[in-house]
Structure formats: C-alpha cells, structure tokens
Design a protein around this nucleic acid. Structure first.
Length: 280
DNA sequence: GCGGTATGCCTAA
DNA sequence: TAGGCCTACCGCG
C-alpha cells in the first residue's frame, strides 16, 4: 500500500537491515543498471536510507544514490539471507548479511546524483513524517488557494506522502467535503488536519498498513483490524460512522469517496476542537 | 486465459 | 483530460 507510511517504514527497515553493509546489488529483471553502483565483487557500501514523501533514497558511498518510487504497483519483499532466487520481475535485489530486499514493479528505480536528489525533494511539499517538515508552507497555500481541499491533499508539491486512502479518511474524520475550496477551510481546521495526518501516517508506519478507525488507538501487537473495518469511507459502500451511502466521484482523475451526511458541502465551523480531538 | 482493478504520476495534446 | 507505464490478484467463463 504505497502511501507515505509504506515508504518511511521501508526506509527504517532497510536501514536497519542493510545500513553500513557492503550490499550485493543486482537487477534480476535487468531493467536497473546495478553496474554503475557496485565494485568488482558486485557490492556497494550502503550508508543511509532516507524517505521523503513517497520517494525513497538509498545513499551509497561515492555519492551514488538509488532513487525509488513505488508508483501504484511497486512492492518490497523482505527475506532472510540467503534468500531463494528472485522472481523474474524483480527490478532490484539488495542482498545484506542477514536480510535480502527485493523490489518489484516500481515506477522509478534509478541512480541519481545528490543534486538530482535535491531537485526531487525540492519539488515536494512538507512531509508530515519528517522532523524537518515545515507545515506553514502547507497552511499558507491552503489559505490562499481556491483549489478543492480534496485535490490539495493529493498534490505532492503541497503536502507529500498523503495518497487516495488517507485523503478520503482525513476529510471524513474532519467532516469536510472534498470540494471545499482550500481558502474556505478554517485555519484551525487546516492545522488540525496536519496533526491528524501526522498521527495517521505514524500509525501506518507502525502497523505497516492504513488503519484510521478504532478511535485511532494503536492496535495491540498481533491484533488485526479486519480490512473491512480499517477505514470509514475509502472504497466502502456505506459510511462506517453513520451507515449512510458513500458517494464516489472523479476529482482530478482520481476517485474520491466521501459520506454526504458526515461531509456536507460548506465550511465547517471555526471551532476546530472537535476536529483536534480526533488527533491521536 | 482474460479483463478489470488498485494505495501514483508523467507526458502529450 | 486522456493515455501510458509499472505488477499481482481476483472473478469469470
């Protein structure tokens, strides 16, 4: 489920698994040129792994960086080393001492320079999962934009890491219609929205999946929230909150799901206390 | 085996 | 705005 939480979790896991090691880098599928990276033994020294929104960066020595974007279909598979042979669609395999990471189906998997990495992150809005995020950039844009808030949340240059599932769920939890213009969204609500996104994404990182229900209390270890119960409106026929009909329409080429009862069109009240209370 | 579908995003018009 | 691209899975015949 590649929204921002997936990428940050991968960064954490892969750094732990492979950081500081001389990793064997290959492309079983052949569509990634690992030769640029590795020495004569087929290895490269992995120094750091960093996530920024939905982008992942593997920083190797000599300033060589592998940039990965999962797109819609990309997936990581984590296995103990020595791992069984990779499936033929494996774009990149990173083989460490104890763990092996396989990457399948990404939109992007390329070697970039530090300058190119900088150019990629410069295009992105603040990332709610990063300590260095500056939400004021997001607040300021929303306040002056007539763009529907439902479209702003999907615009990676305004806030990065939020995808279609979190978009639908965040708007639902705040009782906001996706078509509400940014500038009509009360500033206190926008700040509550940021806090809510931070909480939901962090929870997603911990649970390795998107769960926006159960009062946002972290599920106990091994406790699985059933898939049908993990969201309020996203890809549901009825609203989990009020049992009303969930409506779907296409906004900027992506399907939005919302509850017409819980999320009426019109600015919510200035009082953001109720919204803020939703924050974890 | 085929078609539809999905958590994304880029490009051409 | 439409189309293309990346892959796995599921339901259907």
């Amino acid at each position: 489920m590649p929204e921002g939480h997936t990428i940050h979790r991968a960064a954490r896991d892969h750094l732990r698994d492979l950081g500081g090691q001389r990793v064997v880098v290959t492309s079983p599928q052949g569509r990634f040129d690992a030769d640029v990276l590795v020495d004569a033994s087929g290895r490269a020294h992995l120094q750091h792994v960093e996530a920024y929104g939905k982008h992942l960066f593997y920083v190797f020595e000599s300033e060589r960086i592998v940039h990965v974007h999962l797109g819609l279909f990309g997936k990581f598979y984590r296995r103990r080393s020595p791992a069984s042979p990779p499936r033929s669609s494996t774009r990149m395999r990173l083989e460490g001492e104890a763990m092996t990471i396989d990457l399948v189906g990404p939109t992007a998997c390329d070697v970039v320079t530090p300058e190119q990495m900088q150019a990629i992150t410069a295009r992105l809005g603040p990332d709610p999962l990063r300590a260095d995020a500056k939400p004021r950039r997001f607040y300021a844009y929303v306040a002056r934009s007539k763009t529907p808030i439902g479209a702003i949340l999907m615009d990676q240059s305004r806030i990065c890491g939020v995808g279609n599932v979190y978009r639908a769920e965040v708007l639902h939890l705040l009782g906001i219609h996706p078509d509400l213009p940014g500038s009509s969204t009360p500033p206190a609500t926008v700040r509550a929205m940021w806090r809510l996104i931070v909480g939901l994404l962090r929870r997603g990182v911990e649970e390795k999946r998107i769960v926006t229900t159960r009062g946002l209390v972290l599920a106990k270890p091994r406790e699985r929230v059933p898939r049908s119960d993990s969201t309020h409106v996203y890809r549901r026929r009825t609203c989990r909150t009020c049992q009303g009909v969930v409506l779907t329409y296409i906004l900027r080429a992506r399907a939005v799901h919302y509850c017409s009862t819980c999320q009426p069109l019109g600015a919510p009240s200035e009082d953001a206390d109720s919204a803020a209370a939703l924050g974890p």
